[in-house]
Nucleic acid binder design. Structure first.
Lengths: 247, 247
DNA sequence: TAAATTTGTCTATTGATATAGACAACTATA
DNA sequence: TATAGTTGTCTATATCAATAGACAAATTTA
C-alpha cells in the first residue's frame, strides 16, 4: 500500500492519458522525482503502464501544458515543479504560519467582498439568525506564485463592519481581526471532503480539467467559544496536502 | 461557492458522462436530494448540463450500476443511497465512536496480517530503525454493509507480538492495544491528501473507476508521546467526509 | 564521426464517447 | 380511455481516445 499501484483502468470514463498524468503528478508530489530530474523515457513509461507510447505522450503533453514538465527533444523530459506543499491545519491554523519553511513567498489576495444575508449554513456556523447581514470575503492564497487555496469567509456584518477594507489593506485575516479586538482565535470545527474540480475551481486555482480539490468547511471561534468566522476553502490536491496538527 | 457549478469541461480527459455522474453523486451526498426522491427527468438534466440526453443516460446507467440510483420506466429515476458519512478525526479518533448516531451497524474486518521489515517511512513514524520487524494489519471498515475505509497499520513486532490474533478476535484496534497495556492513546499527526482511486482502491472499497479517495497517513502515540501505531487509510470521497474535531 | 538514445511528427485503423432523431414501452393523470 | 410525461431501445454520424508503425530531428555517448 506504500507505493502507488501502476495499473490503470480502461472504460472508466477517465481517459488513460489523464490517469497516467495523475500518476506522474502524484509521483512528483510525493517526491519520487526530484526537481529537474529526468522522467523515464516515453517507451519505458508506456511499458510500465501497459499502454502505447502515444498515450504516454498525451499525458506528458498535458503536464507540459500545465507547467509541471519540460520536454527536450533528444534529451528527455524533466520535472519543473516541486513537492506538494504541506498545509497545516489545527486549532491555531493561520495561512502563513508553518508554510515558512517550505516556501520563499506567500500571501493572500482579496478578490472580492460583499454584504449579503446569511444562508442557512452560514447562519448556523456563525450562530446568527438566517438572513442576518454578513460580510463575505473571497480570497486566494498563493505560495511561490502558485495558487494554493481559494476561500470564501463570512463574518457578522454588525460586529465586523469594515473588515473587508482591513483585509484589503493588511492582506491578513489575523491582522484584520486584531483591529476588532480579536487577539486570539481557535479553529472550532473542520469538515473535509474531496471532489473533482468544477469550472470555477479550474479558473480560480489555475488547474487543468480532471483535477481534484480538497474542500474544508470550518468555523473559527474566540477562546471563549464565540463564533467569528465561517469559511469554505478549496485546495488543489496535486499541489497541497493537509497536515492535521494536534493543539 | 455554496452550490456546485453546473458547468462541465470538454476535452478534459474525463468523459462527460463521468463528470455528470460525479455531479449527481455530490448532489446526493450533500443532501440536495432526499432518499427515495426523484431525480429531474433526463431531458431536464441534459438541458441543465448542456449535453445530449444519451450522455445523461450514460451517467445514470453508471450510478444505477453502482447501486446509487434506481430507474423505473415511465415513472422516473430515484435516489437509493443516503448522505455522506461524517467520519470524526481528532486526538482520540477511534473507528466506531462518533459513527453511532449515523449508522446502525459498523465494524472492522481484518483482511490480512504479516510481519515485515520496516520501510523508511514506517520506521520514521514509529521511531524504529529501518528494517526493524513490524507487524502489518490490513483492515477494512464497514458501515451498514458498505466499505467506508481501508487501512494498513504497522506496529513494533517486538512490543506487540500477537496483536494480529488479538485484532482477529476482538475486531477492534483499541481493544487489541488494551491487551498490551495501552489504556489510552492519542493521534499525534495526520497528513491528508486526495487522489483518483487506483485498481486496489476500486477492489477494496467497491468503487467505480474514476472515483476519488481521501488518504490519511497518521501516527498514534501513548499519552507520554511514545509512537505505537503508524497507519495509512483510504476513504471513498463519495461516501465519507472527515470531520476534524478539536481535542 | 558513427551509433545509440530520446523526443517530435506523420499516416492509418479501431473502439469509446457524444450527438441527433425516431419510436416503443410504461406510468400517472385528466 | 386518451393524453402527457417519462424511461428504454434502435439507427446513424461525427469526434475523441488509443493503438500501431515508420521515420525525422536533436542530443548524448562510444
Amino acid at each position: 500500500m506504500i507505493g502507488q499501484t501502476d495499473s490503470i483502468e480502461r472504460r472508466s470514463g477517465v481517459s488513460l492519458w489523464r490517469q497516467i498524468a495523475d500518476k506522474i503528478l502524484q509521483a512528483i508530489a510525493s517526491g519520487d522525482f526530484a526537481e529537474n530530474a529526468a522522467l523515464p523515457p516515453e517507451m519505458a513509461l508506456a511499458e510500465r503502464y501497459g499502454v502505447n507510447r502515444h498515450t504516454v505522450r498525451s499525458a506528458i503533453a498535458a503536464l507540459v501544458q500545465e507547467g509541471v514538465l519540460r520536454a527536450e527533444q533528444g534529451r528527455g523530459t524533466f520535472v519543473l515543479s516541486r513537492k506538494r506543499l504541506s498545509y497545516p491545519i489545527g486549532a491555531r491554523t493561520r495561512f502563513s504560519t508553518g508554510l515558512q519553511a517550505q516556501t520563499s513567498e506567500r500571501h493572500i489576495v482579496l478578490l472580492a467582498s460583499s454584504v449579503e444575508p446569511a444562508s442557512q449554513r452560514v447562519a448556523e456556523g456563525l450562530g446568527l439568525a438566517r438572513g442576518a447581514a454578513v460580510i463575505r470575503l473571497e480570497t486566494r492564497g498563493e505560495a511561490d506564485g502558485r495558487p494554493v487555496s481559494r476561500a470564501a469567509s463570512w463574518f457578522d456584518a454588525n460586529r465586523f463592519a469594515g473588515i473587508d477594507a482591513a483585509m484589503a489593506e493588511t492582506g491578513s485575516i489575523t491582522a484584520s481581526l486584531a483591529r476588532f479586538g480579536i487577539d486570539d482565535y481557535l479553529r472550532q470545527s473542520t469538515v473535509l471532503s474531496a471532489r473533482h474540480a468544477d469550472a470555477a475551481d479550474l479558473a480560480d486555482l489555475d488547474l487543468q480539467p480532471g483535477a481534484i480539490v480538497l474542500v474544508t468547511v470550518a468555523v473559527n471561534v474566540t477562546p471563549d467559544g464565540q463564533p467569528i468566522q465561517f469559511s469554505e476553502s478549496r485546495f488543489p490536491a496535486e499541489r497541497v496536502e493537509l497536515k492535521l496538527s494536534a493543539l
